[in-house]
């Protein structure tokens, strides 16, 4: 059984695998298992989100309105398009069209960077509006971008005659709850953005390898695996976007 197969001489074959097929099977399985751990990882955060959203629906709706939906929506489109270009990269790799592969990888990288750029401006905005949880968190002077009314009041419209003590007691609690929303917002989108950065790194690495001519019709599993990862990260965003940005839209009643 000395594997004197000819595929054993492929430069990409690691020494401990019998042949390229076994190697490819192993890396595919590993990627799927890895994605399973990723689901569990995000799952913990989603669970916390679900619990606190059901405990504090009003605060979550108010806080959600402070997010910039347009930016979120734009980013969603960017990611969906990037998923398409990634799929095209994988297809090109499988067809052995290295020129097209490089083009699509670069497009995907640009789209991914666009997402991160938009995210940067969103974070910057939150930071300047004191919406980053911690010592400087402050929601009191935040205005609803749509109605211009103080968001605080939104949830106790009938409390028109509230005295100083009244509203301060109230806002302490609301502030805490809103802060929980923003903690989860930053934890979830931050973790997602971290995955995007890793993804961008992987794309760069693929582009370099593709330019070096490492990929061929026979050997392209790195492109496929990164593709799988990229789609996963996109899907996470598809869940994050409505959960974080859209819950407050219909809640103002």
């Amino acid at each position: 059984m000395h594997s004197s197969d000819h595929s054993a001489h492929h430069p990409a074959l690691a020494h401990h695998f019998q042949d390229l097929d076994q190697q490819k099977d192993a890396t595919w399985l590993a990627m799927w298992v890895f994605l399973a751990t990723e689901i569990m990882f995000f799952g913990g955060l989603f669970l916390a989100y679900v619990i606190y959203r059901s405990s504090y629906p009003d605060a979550f709706a108010i806080a959600s309105n402070a997010l910039n939906v347009n930016m979120g929506l734009g980013n969603t489109f960017v990611l969906i398009i990037s998923s398409f270009t990634m799929a095209m990269s994988v297809y090109s790799a499988q067809m052995g069209q290295i020129g097209r592969l490089v083009v699509f990888l670069i497009l995907t990288l640009i789209l991914g960077s666009t997402f991160l750029g938009v995210k940067y401006f969103e974070y910057k905005d939150k930071f300047e509006s004191h919406l980053v949880p911690g010592r400087h968190f402050d929601f009191a002077h935040h205005h609803d971008p749509k109605t211009g009314e103080l968001l605080e009041g939104a949830h106790s419209e009938s409390a028109n005659k509230a005295t100083e003590a009244h509203s301060s007691g109230h806002s302490e609690k609301a502030k805490r709850e809103i802060q929980i929303f923003f903690s989860l917002y930053f934890a979830m989108t931050g973790l997602h953005a971290f995955h995007m950065i890793i993804g961008a790194g992987l794309l760069t690495w693929l582009i370099v390898l593709a330019l070096k001519g490492r990929f061929s019709r026979e050997y392209n599993s790195p492109v496929e695996l990164v593709g799988l990862y990229w789609h996963f990260v996109d899907i996470v965003w598809i869940f994050l976007f409505p959960l974080l940005y859209l819950i407050g839209r219909h809640h103002h009643g």
């Binding site: 001489h9 690691a14 020494h15 190697q23 990627m31 790195p222 990862y229």
Partner: peptide, 14 residues
């Protein structure tokens, strides 16, 4: 993740 795939050090121990 898949850095090992491009393992160029092929140790063929005959």
């Amino acid at each position: 993740m898949s850095a090992h795939v491009i393992d160029s050090q092929v140790i063929v121990q005959t």
